[in-house]
């Protein structure tokens, strides 16, 4: 019957609208849990999620050694030319020439944090760090050298 449907429609509409208003009303009156972060104040206790990507860094151990072989897989994997690896040849103890990195250049201003370089790296040398305070006054400061000065490749990494 038409009239019955009509009244049922109105009843259901009012009921569903009231359900929504009940929820927002509950949030309004129970104003304790805040889901947003008060950023500059909570800098010490910042709670970033695990998969947040801020910038690419190279892992160095306590002896200032890294695992980068200079294979430039990351450079090839990067979709927009963020990484540039400059290699040099070192002569090791046995008198053989061996490839090693001279400078690992990383353009933060081009990076889209897509994570492809991390996936491509065969030796897990680089990783995504969670630092996000990157603003500087000079653009050239965003071009970074990732391998620390004086660092060398760890023994046994080929």
């Amino acid at each position: 019957m038409f009239l019955k449907e009509y009244i049922k429609d109105i009843y259901n509409a009012v009921k569903s609208l009231l359900t929504g208003m009940k929820l927002t009303g509950y949030y309004f009156t129970h104003h304790k849990e805040i889901i947003t972060e008060q950023y500059p104040e909570n800098r010490e206790t910042l709670n970033l999620s695990e998969r947040f990507r801020g910038e690419v860094v190279m892992i160095h151990d306590e002896n200032n050694e890294h695992a980068c072989t200079g294979c430039s897989a990351c450079e090839l994997a990067c979709p927009n030319g963020t990484i540039k690896i400059i290699n040099k040849f070192e002569i090791n103890a046995e008198g053989k020439k061996k490839k090693a990195i001279d400078t690992f250049i990383y353009h933060l201003e081009l990076c889209t944090m897509c994570n492809l370089c991390i996936v491509a790296c065969p030796t897990d040398t680089i990783k995504m760090a969670q630092n996000f305070e990157h603003s500087v006054y000079d653009r050239s400061l965003l071009t970074k050298k990732l391998n620390h000065s004086g660092s060398k490749i760890r023994e046994g990494v080929e």
């Binding site: 927002t24 949030y27 309004f28 104003h31 947003t36 008060q38």
Partner: peptide, 10 residues
């Protein structure tokens, strides 16, 4: 303010 309170913001 009302909007923020209803969306659990400040």
């Amino acid at each position: 303010k009302v909007a923020a309170f209803m969306q659990i913001r400040l």
